[in-house]
């Protein structure tokens, strides 16, 4: 752990006093890669070959996630499987549009995942708003709120496209290019400011450990 002075505590200003003691106020800290290069490469290979996807349908694109497990597409053979709890999963798929209400849940789930963690944006809506470009309740760029490692664009992308996206993600992880977890920690204040700008009723701690 790094010295606490380098990472001052979070204000948690939006919590009511009775709840403040229930939540952690420590800032997130970046994780260090393994000191030995060979070990880090091996770890990346392992991470790439065991992608546990958070089974959280954030939008219409979630309908494309379910067929992945069926006989036709069989994502199991790439080491992809669904986990029902954010604690144990390492990939979150932002499937399609996300309304402000969903964004809050996405952030909570994302922050509860343990690093290294990866985010896959599915569908044009997560990229630039897509057909919801003028919606009062749909955010346009998900990468302003959580760090995205890979986009699969389309409306809707078919499961084949999603599968290709997963394979691309695996290649990126193996190459050690997916540093979203540390980017989020590094630009934490920027991300948090963006999140609080759109989420009006912020009634949770600043970082959901």
């Amino acid at each position: 752990m790094t010295d606490k002075n380098d990472y001052p505590t979070l204000a948690n200003a939006d919590l009511i006093d009775a709840e403040r003691s229930l939540f952690c106020d420590a800032r997130p800290v970046p994780y260090e890669p393994y000191p030995v290069d060979f070990v880090e490469k091996f770890a990346n290979w392992v991470r790439a070959n065991s992608l546990w996807v958070l089974a959280f349908g954030t939008g219409c694109g979630a309908i494309e996630l379910n067929p992945l497990m069926t006989s036709r597409f069989d994502a199991n053979r790439y080491g992809i499987q669904m986990r029902p709890t954010p604690r144990q999963s390492c990939v979150i798929v932002v499937a399609g549009y996300s309304s402000v209400k969903t964004l809050k849940r996405i952030i909570r789930s994302y922050e509860q995942m343990q690093g290294p963690k990866f985010v896959l944006g599915l569908g044009i809506c997560s990229l630039n708003g897509g057909m919801y470009w003028d919606s009062y309740n749909t955010i346009k760029r998900i990468d302003q709120y959580i760090p995205i490692d890979l986009y699969v664009t389309g409306c809707m992308p078919r499961p084949e496209a999603l599968l290709a996206g997963f394979i691309e993600l695996k290649d990126k992880i193996k190459a050690g290019q997916c540093d979203g977890t540390n980017r989020y920690v590094k630009d934490f204040d920027w991300y948090k400011a963006n999140q609080k700008k759109v989420i009006k009723n912020w009634d949770m701690p600043d970082y959901n450990w």
């Binding site: 994780y31 260090e32 890669p33 770890a43 392992v46 991470r47 070959n49 065991s50 546990w52 144990q88 390492c90 343990q114 690093g115 290294p116 977890t181 450990w209």
Partner: peptide, 10 residues
């Protein structure tokens, strides 16, 4: 091995 090489654990 994957769960073991996670770098964060709360």
């Amino acid at each position: 091995l994957k769960t073991f090489t996670k770098r964060q654990a709360i």
